[in-house]
Design a protein around this nucleic acid. Sequence first.
DNA 1: CCAATACATTGATGGATGTCAATACACCGC
DNA 2: GCGGTGTATTGACATCCATCAATGTATTGG
Lengths: 115, 115
Amino acid sequence: MPVGVLLPVIQSAACCSPLTRAALGAPEAEDLARSLKALADPTRLRLVSIVAASQNAEACVCDLTEGFDLSQPTISHHLRVLTDAGFLRRTQRGTWAWYSLVPGALDAVGALLAP
Amino acid sequence: MPVGVLLPVIQSAACCSPLTRAALGAPEAEDLARSLKALADPTRLRLVSIVAASQNAEACVCDLTEGFDLSQPTISHHLRVLTDAGFLRRTQRGTWAWYSLVPGALDAVGALLAP
DNA sequence: CCAATACATTGATGGATGTCAATACACCGC
DNA sequence: GCGGTGTATTGACATCCATCAATGTATTGG
Protein backbone atom coordinates (compact mmCIF):
# COMPACT_ATOMS: atom_id res chain seq x y z
CA MET A 1 0.00 0.00 0.00
CA PRO A 2 1.49 3.35 -1.02
CA VAL A 3 2.48 5.79 1.66
CA GLY A 4 0.52 8.54 -0.06
CA VAL A 5 -1.77 8.90 -3.02
CA LEU A 6 0.13 8.77 -6.29
CA LEU A 7 0.60 12.23 -7.71
CA PRO A 8 1.39 12.89 -11.31
CA VAL A 9 3.03 16.20 -10.50
CA ILE A 10 3.52 17.26 -14.04
CA GLN A 11 -0.05 16.94 -15.18
CA SER A 12 -1.61 18.40 -12.08
CA ALA A 13 0.81 21.30 -12.20
CA ALA A 14 0.63 21.97 -15.90
CA CYS A 15 -3.12 22.27 -15.79
CA CYS A 16 -3.40 25.39 -13.70
CA SER A 17 -2.23 28.94 -13.82
CA PRO A 18 0.38 30.18 -11.37
CA LEU A 19 -0.53 31.17 -7.85
CA THR A 20 -0.32 34.85 -8.57
CA ARG A 21 -2.56 34.85 -11.63
CA ALA A 22 -5.93 33.96 -10.19
CA ALA A 23 -7.25 32.57 -6.93
CA LEU A 24 -6.48 28.89 -6.69
CA GLY A 25 -9.41 26.53 -6.53
CA ALA A 26 -9.68 24.12 -3.62
CA PRO A 27 -8.79 20.97 -5.59
CA GLU A 28 -5.79 22.58 -7.27
CA ALA A 29 -4.62 23.83 -3.90
CA GLU A 30 -4.84 20.30 -2.51
CA ASP A 31 -2.78 18.91 -5.34
CA LEU A 32 -0.09 21.55 -5.13
CA ALA A 33 0.00 21.25 -1.35
CA ARG A 34 0.63 17.51 -1.63
CA SER A 35 3.51 18.10 -4.00
CA LEU A 36 5.00 20.80 -1.81
CA LYS A 37 4.58 18.68 1.30
CA ALA A 38 6.64 15.97 -0.32
CA LEU A 39 9.42 18.48 -0.84
CA ALA A 40 9.06 20.28 2.46
CA ASP A 41 11.55 18.21 4.40
CA PRO A 42 15.28 18.92 4.71
CA THR A 43 16.28 15.31 4.12
CA ARG A 44 14.07 14.94 1.07
CA LEU A 45 15.32 18.21 -0.38
CA ARG A 46 18.87 17.02 -0.01
CA LEU A 47 18.03 13.65 -1.54
CA VAL A 48 16.42 15.27 -4.57
CA SER A 49 19.34 17.64 -4.78
CA ILE A 50 21.91 14.85 -4.73
CA VAL A 51 20.06 12.95 -7.43
CA ALA A 52 19.63 16.08 -9.55
CA ALA A 53 23.28 17.02 -9.27
CA SER A 54 24.46 13.52 -10.21
CA GLN A 55 25.45 12.34 -13.67
CA ASN A 56 22.36 11.64 -15.78
CA ALA A 57 20.29 12.90 -12.87
CA GLU A 58 20.32 9.49 -11.23
CA ALA A 59 21.99 8.05 -8.18
CA CYS A 60 22.37 4.71 -6.47
CA VAL A 61 20.86 4.36 -3.01
CA CYS A 62 24.33 3.59 -1.74
CA ASP A 63 25.28 7.16 -2.66
CA LEU A 64 22.17 8.51 -1.01
CA THR A 65 22.48 6.90 2.40
CA GLU A 66 25.88 8.46 2.96
CA GLY A 67 26.08 11.93 4.40
CA PHE A 68 22.94 11.53 6.47
CA ASP A 69 22.77 10.76 10.15
CA LEU A 70 19.67 8.69 9.57
CA SER A 71 18.90 4.99 9.52
CA GLN A 72 18.60 3.16 6.23
CA PRO A 73 14.83 2.59 6.63
CA THR A 74 14.31 6.31 7.12
CA ILE A 75 16.14 7.16 3.91
CA SER A 76 14.15 4.46 2.17
CA HIS A 77 10.96 6.01 3.49
CA HIS A 78 11.90 9.46 2.19
CA LEU A 79 12.75 8.05 -1.21
CA ARG A 80 9.36 6.42 -1.31
CA VAL A 81 7.58 9.66 -0.48
CA LEU A 82 9.46 11.44 -3.26
CA THR A 83 8.70 8.62 -5.68
CA ASP A 84 5.01 8.53 -4.78
CA ALA A 85 4.88 12.28 -5.26
CA GLY A 86 6.27 11.90 -8.75
CA PHE A 87 9.62 13.61 -8.28
CA LEU A 88 11.78 10.49 -8.43
CA ARG A 89 11.63 7.26 -10.34
CA ARG A 90 13.03 3.95 -9.09
CA THR A 91 14.98 1.52 -11.23
CA GLN A 92 16.35 -1.77 -10.03
CA ARG A 93 19.68 -2.69 -11.56
CA GLY A 94 20.88 -5.99 -10.20
CA THR A 95 21.31 -5.70 -6.45
CA TRP A 96 21.23 -1.95 -6.50
CA ALA A 97 18.35 0.46 -6.72
CA TRP A 98 18.80 3.66 -8.67
CA TYR A 99 16.72 6.75 -8.27
CA SER A 100 16.43 9.24 -11.09
CA LEU A 101 14.83 12.64 -11.40
CA VAL A 102 11.50 12.70 -13.24
CA PRO A 103 12.11 15.35 -15.91
CA GLY A 104 9.99 18.45 -15.48
CA ALA A 105 8.46 17.51 -12.15
CA LEU A 106 10.42 19.99 -10.07
CA ASP A 107 10.11 22.66 -12.73
CA ALA A 108 6.35 22.27 -12.91
CA VAL A 109 6.02 23.01 -9.22
CA GLY A 110 8.54 25.84 -9.36
CA ALA A 111 6.76 27.41 -12.30
CA LEU A 112 3.57 27.66 -10.27
CA LEU A 113 5.33 29.71 -7.63
CA ALA A 114 7.56 31.83 -9.87
CA PRO A 115 5.74 32.61 -13.10
CA MET B 1 5.97 34.41 20.87
CA PRO B 2 6.12 33.64 17.14
CA VAL B 3 4.67 30.40 15.88
CA GLY B 4 7.87 29.66 14.00
CA VAL B 5 11.28 31.16 13.63
CA LEU B 6 11.23 34.24 11.43
CA LEU B 7 12.44 33.41 7.98
CA PRO B 8 13.66 36.02 5.57
CA VAL B 9 12.77 33.92 2.57
CA ILE B 10 14.35 36.17 0.03
CA GLN B 11 17.80 36.30 1.53
CA SER B 12 17.99 32.64 2.40
CA ALA B 13 16.77 31.73 -1.05
CA ALA B 14 18.87 34.16 -3.01
CA CYS B 15 22.05 32.93 -1.41
CA CYS B 16 22.11 29.43 -2.79
CA SER B 17 22.11 27.81 -6.15
CA PRO B 18 19.06 25.89 -7.36
CA LEU B 19 18.41 22.34 -6.22
CA THR B 20 19.56 20.85 -9.46
CA ARG B 21 22.92 22.62 -9.64
CA ALA B 22 24.79 21.14 -6.74
CA ALA B 23 23.94 19.05 -3.71
CA LEU B 24 22.22 21.19 -1.11
CA GLY B 25 23.96 21.66 2.21
CA ALA B 26 22.14 20.72 5.39
CA PRO B 27 21.52 24.30 6.60
CA GLU B 28 20.25 25.45 3.22
CA ALA B 29 17.97 22.44 3.06
CA GLU B 30 16.56 23.33 6.47
CA ASP B 31 15.83 26.88 5.39
CA LEU B 32 14.18 25.89 2.15
CA ALA B 33 12.19 23.16 3.88
CA ARG B 34 10.82 25.70 6.35
CA SER B 35 9.70 27.95 3.53
CA LEU B 36 8.12 25.09 1.63
CA LYS B 37 6.41 23.79 4.75
CA ALA B 38 4.75 27.16 5.20
CA LEU B 39 3.35 26.86 1.68
CA ALA B 40 2.52 23.17 1.80
CA ASP B 41 -1.03 23.53 3.01
CA PRO B 42 -4.11 23.87 0.80
CA THR B 43 -5.61 26.66 2.87
CA ARG B 44 -2.39 28.65 2.97
CA LEU B 45 -1.88 28.23 -0.76
CA ARG B 46 -5.34 29.57 -1.41
CA LEU B 47 -4.77 32.45 0.99
CA VAL B 48 -1.54 33.44 -0.74
CA SER B 49 -3.25 33.02 -4.07
CA ILE B 50 -6.16 35.27 -3.12
CA VAL B 51 -3.79 37.96 -1.87
CA ALA B 52 -1.61 37.68 -4.95
CA ALA B 53 -4.54 37.89 -7.32
CA SER B 54 -5.98 40.93 -5.56
CA GLN B 55 -5.45 44.55 -6.55
CA ASN B 56 -2.03 45.77 -5.41
CA ALA B 57 -1.38 42.24 -4.18
CA GLU B 58 -3.08 42.95 -0.89
CA ALA B 59 -6.34 41.87 0.67
CA CYS B 60 -8.36 42.57 3.77
CA VAL B 61 -8.86 39.70 6.20
CA CYS B 62 -12.58 40.11 5.65
CA ASP B 63 -12.00 39.01 2.07
CA LEU B 64 -9.83 36.12 3.21
CA THR B 65 -12.16 34.50 5.73
CA GLU B 66 -14.86 34.06 3.11
CA GLY B 67 -14.82 31.01 0.91
CA PHE B 68 -13.30 28.79 3.57
CA ASP B 69 -15.14 26.35 5.77
CA LEU B 70 -12.83 27.19 8.62
CA SER B 71 -13.14 29.17 11.81
CA GLN B 72 -11.75 32.68 12.00
CA PRO B 73 -8.97 31.72 14.43
CA THR B 74 -7.81 29.04 12.03
CA ILE B 75 -7.55 31.51 9.16
CA SER B 76 -5.74 33.89 11.48
CA HIS B 77 -3.32 31.12 12.38
CA HIS B 78 -2.56 30.36 8.73
CA LEU B 79 -1.99 34.04 8.00
CA ARG B 80 0.46 34.15 10.85
CA VAL B 81 2.38 31.17 9.54
CA LEU B 82 2.63 32.78 6.13
CA THR B 83 3.70 36.07 7.66
CA ASP B 84 6.31 34.45 9.90
CA ALA B 85 7.64 32.63 6.85
CA GLY B 86 8.08 35.91 5.04
CA PHE B 87 5.51 35.45 2.31
CA LEU B 88 2.96 37.94 3.61
CA ARG B 89 3.14 41.25 5.41
CA ARG B 90 0.52 42.53 7.78
CA THR B 91 -0.72 46.11 7.83
CA GLN B 92 -3.33 47.44 10.21
CA ARG B 93 -5.62 50.04 8.64
CA GLY B 94 -8.13 51.24 11.16
CA THR B 95 -10.22 48.34 12.31
CA TRP B 96 -9.17 46.10 9.46
CA ALA B 97 -6.02 44.12 8.89
CA TRP B 98 -4.60 43.91 5.39
CA TYR B 99 -2.23 41.28 4.18
CA SER B 100 0.05 41.94 1.23
CA LEU B 101 2.46 39.81 -0.74
CA VAL B 102 6.11 40.32 0.07
CA PRO B 103 7.59 41.02 -3.37
CA GLY B 104 9.95 38.34 -4.56
CA ALA B 105 9.36 35.90 -1.75
CA LEU B 106 7.39 33.39 -3.76
CA ASP B 107 9.64 33.85 -6.76
CA ALA B 108 12.75 33.18 -4.72
CA VAL B 109 11.44 29.81 -3.63
CA GLY B 110 10.15 28.98 -7.08
CA ALA B 111 13.47 29.87 -8.65
CA LEU B 112 15.23 27.32 -6.47
CA LEU B 113 13.03 24.57 -7.84
CA ALA B 114 12.81 25.69 -11.46
CA PRO B 115 16.09 27.28 -12.50
C1' DC C 1 21.28 -24.42 -1.28
C1' DC C 2 23.40 -20.94 2.01
C1' DA C 3 25.32 -17.01 3.71
C1' DA C 4 25.81 -12.22 2.67
C1' DT C 5 24.50 -7.92 0.89
C1' DA C 6 21.12 -4.21 -0.60
C1' DC C 7 16.99 -2.35 0.05
C1' DA C 8 11.95 -2.29 1.46
C1' DT C 9 8.19 -2.95 4.78
C1' DT C 10 6.04 -3.17 9.38
C1' DG C 11 5.01 -1.58 13.93
C1' DA C 12 5.74 1.55 17.50
C1' DT C 13 6.61 6.15 19.38
C1' DG C 14 7.43 11.06 20.25
C1' DG C 15 6.83 15.43 18.34
C1' DA C 16 4.80 18.62 15.06
C1' DT C 17 0.52 20.52 13.04
C1' DG C 18 -4.38 21.82 11.79
C1' DT C 19 -8.52 22.72 14.01
C1' DC C 20 -11.92 24.75 17.18
C1' DA C 21 -14.06 27.01 21.45
C1' DA C 22 -13.14 30.40 24.52
C1' DT C 23 -11.01 34.45 25.47
C1' DA C 24 -8.36 38.65 24.82
C1' DC C 25 -7.16 42.81 22.38
C1' DA C 26 -7.85 46.96 19.42
C1' DC C 27 -10.54 50.19 17.15
C1' DC C 28 -14.83 52.63 16.17
C1' DG C 29 -19.43 54.97 16.72
C1' DC C 30 -22.41 56.66 20.03
C1' DG D 1 -16.62 55.49 28.69
C1' DC D 2 -19.31 51.67 26.42
C1' DG D 3 -21.07 48.26 23.63
C1' DG D 4 -20.01 46.33 19.12
C1' DT D 5 -17.19 44.65 15.55
C1' DG D 6 -12.87 42.83 13.50
C1' DT D 7 -8.66 39.99 14.54
C1' DA D 8 -5.35 37.75 17.33
C1' DT D 9 -4.03 34.59 21.07
C1' DT D 10 -4.55 30.64 24.20
C1' DG D 11 -5.49 25.96 25.41
C1' DA D 12 -6.98 21.53 24.20
C1' DC D 13 -7.33 17.76 21.12
C1' DA D 14 -6.92 14.65 17.27
C1' DT D 15 -4.25 13.55 13.50
C1' DC D 16 -0.21 13.34 10.84
C1' DC D 17 4.73 12.58 10.26
C1' DA D 18 9.76 11.56 10.90
C1' DT D 19 12.27 8.23 13.01
C1' DC D 20 14.07 3.74 14.54
C1' DA D 21 14.37 -1.40 15.61
C1' DA D 22 13.04 -5.52 13.84
C1' DT D 23 11.86 -8.15 10.09
C1' DG D 24 11.04 -9.31 5.22
C1' DT D 25 12.42 -9.81 0.27
C1' DA D 26 15.53 -10.07 -3.61
C1' DT D 27 19.80 -10.73 -5.67
C1' DT D 28 24.55 -12.24 -5.74
C1' DG D 29 28.67 -15.28 -4.73
C1' DG D 30 30.38 -19.39 -3.11
